[in-house]
Design a protein around this nucleic acid. Structure first.
Length: 494
RNA sequence: GGGCCGGUAGCUCAGUUGGCAGAGCAUCUGACUUUUAAUCAGAUGGUCGUGGGUUCGAUUCCCCCCCGGCUCACCA
């Protein structure tokens, strides 16, 4: 048996002492009929005298977060899923036996209380306990009441504890849930069909990223956790579902940072008979809808600054943005070798064979992306780095694609879909060449996807929105780990 | 993976120019029937992240490692 420190021994001893006294320390027979918020709301307008006349009995359940004792009476702070309420416990109200059991309760214990509302001397609406019972004995002490829990490692590893003691954290995850609900509502109202496509792929497609590999024993084959649902969703558009969306996890075997978690949530959606341009308007409306519902304003704080989401958002081509935020002129960017020379002046370490398109993307990442604080659509991405996007009719060097940047981060990526199977096959072949040349993230050939396109994908536009980053923006969170309940960490050392 | 910073009581943190390890809260004992970080009196609680090295002696100095944060690289 492991050695327990004093605090833990004391709590285990209390379990035994309750059992010896015939009290079940893990009871499940207390009926709760109200929560803290309901009780508080029911009597917000009742003053002290009015409340004396009120004959109501509430049965509430929750965790003891604080207690202040006075010998034969005490105040408790009871916390449940809705908030906190003060409970007053007095010997002459609950009786001697119950009061003895009450005295052994610890902060962290979960109790049931029945009683009536009243206001204290300081006018705080409270519940005067007629009955108070232990429902779940807590064996581990909670963090300190004043400073709470700040150690981020414990907060992430033991999120349950973080949620118990940090109301701000609870608020962020409630908002996350609200955002996802609103998104779903909005998409359904816009006539999109919600679907679920495979998480385990035989070919890791739809994005450029390193996949996680897993293995199916019976089929005796390796599978990839999906890096994107894109190719499956477009198969569904081929199948006749003109508007589809999926909100689900993607897995990418890349670095971890304040804006990257190995598994992250993406909403991807596809709309037939639309263009990437249509999606820019849709994206503005969608995100503004969410911001006004969740934040109550289109001007929202982020870090030390503000973000103004009021449409219309800035639109720049990739090259225009480099001219605006960098130090190169348009003619330099039009020329591959001059662009390369410019990139070198930025200190970028580049393969000397790098293509013009990749070069521009590298330059953009370096000089533009961090500066796009206010919402900005960047368009005219190089075809070279967009193997699934439709080439622009006027200039086949670029595709009909945009990415949305807010607070210096990519939030969404969208394009008119490449629906010409012959072109798509060529692009895949090009990707295979790059893979052979050592690009681990180059796209693999997906013959069945080509076959689907051969049956005919209507002209379609599609988009992916990073939900974690969207939640970060709308909850003013600095790290993706603050909006993912259980972020990935190394194993805990025992 | 590289750089920087951190890991001391259940929690939040001090501290030791190398010599028995400190506070507040929590906990325990006692007092108190209207508190709001309640108050008052007393008490308990530590392999100072792990493993080595130097030293009469290491939590402190040195080295390896582990875990975390930020950052760079990669990416969304």
């Amino acid at each position: 048996m492991e050695e327990l420190n004093e605090l833990l021994q004391q709590r285990r001893a209390k379990v035994k002492s309750y059992q010896d006294a015939g009290v079940n320390p893990f009871a499940n027979d207390f009926v709760v009929n109200h929560n803290a918020q309901q009780v508080l709301e029911a009597h917000t307008d009742d003053d002290k005298e009015t409340l004396e006349e009120v004959e109501a009995t509430y049965r509430i359940g929750g965790r003891i977060m604080a207690r202040r004792d006075f010998g034969k009476a005490a105040f408790l702070q009871l916390q449940d899923g809705s908030g906190r309420i003060q409970v007053y416990v007095a010997l002459n109200q609950v009786g001697e036996e119950a009061f003895e059991n009450f005295k052994k309760l610890d902060i962290g214990d979960i109790i049931g209380v029945s009683g009536s509302p009243f206001r204290t001397k300081t006018d705080e609406l409270s519940v005067r306990a007629a009955e108070i019972r232990l429902l779940t004995k807590s064996l581990l002490p909670l963090p300190e009441k004043w400073h709470g829990l700040t150690d981020v490692e414990i907060r992430y590893r033991q999120r349950y504890l973080d949620l118990i003691v940090n109301p701000d954290v609870r608020a962020v995850f409630r908002k996350r849930s609200q955002i996802v609900s609103l998104l779903r509502e909005y998409m359904l109202a816009s006539d999109y069909l919600e679907v679920e496509t495979p998480m385990m792929h035989q070919i890791a497609g739809g994005a450029t990223a390193k996949p996680f590999v897993t293995h199916h024993n019976t089929l005796k084959m390796d599978l990839f956790l999906r890096i994107a649902p894109e190719l499956y969703l477009k198969r569904l558009v081929v199948g006749g579902f003109d508007r589809v969306f999926e909100i689900n996890r993607n897995f990418r075997n890349e670095g971890i940072s304040i804006q990257h978690n190995p598994e992250f949530t993406m909403m991807e959606f596809y709309r037939a008979y639309a263009t990437y341009s249509d999606l820019m308007y849709f994206t503005e409306e969608l995100i503004c809808h969410l911001a006004s519902k969740v934040c109550g304003s289109l001007v929202i704080p982020y870090g030390e600054k503000e973000v103004d989401l009021t449409p219309p958002w800035d639109r720049l081509t990739l090259k225009e943005s480099i001219v605006k935020y960098g130090t190169a002129d348009m003619p330099v960017l039009e020329d591959r070798d001059q662009s390369f020379a410019y990139a070198q002046t930025l200190g970028l370490a580049l393969d000397s064979n790098i293509g013009h398109g990749k070069l521009l993307a590298e330059i953009f990442d370096e000089v533009v992306e961090p500066k796009l604080w206010q919402p900005t659509f960047i368009t005219e991405y190089p075809t070279e780095i967009s193997p699934l996007s439709r080439k622009n009719d006027q200039n086949p060097e670029v595709v009909d694609r945009f990415e949305l940047f807010i607070v210096g981060r990519e939030l969404a990526n969208a394009f008119s879909e490449l629906n010409n199977p012959l072109d798509q096959k060529e692009r895949f072949l090009q990707q295979l060449e790059e893979k052979a040349a050592g690009d681990e993230e180059a796209h693999g050939m997906d013959e069945d996807y080509i076959r689907a396109l051969e049956y005919g994908l209507p002209p379609t536009a599609g988009e992916g929105i990073g939900i974690d980053r969207l939640v970060m923006l709308l909850t003013n969170s600095a790290s993706i780990r603050d909006v993912i309940l259980f972020p990935q960490l190394r194993p805990e050392i025992s």
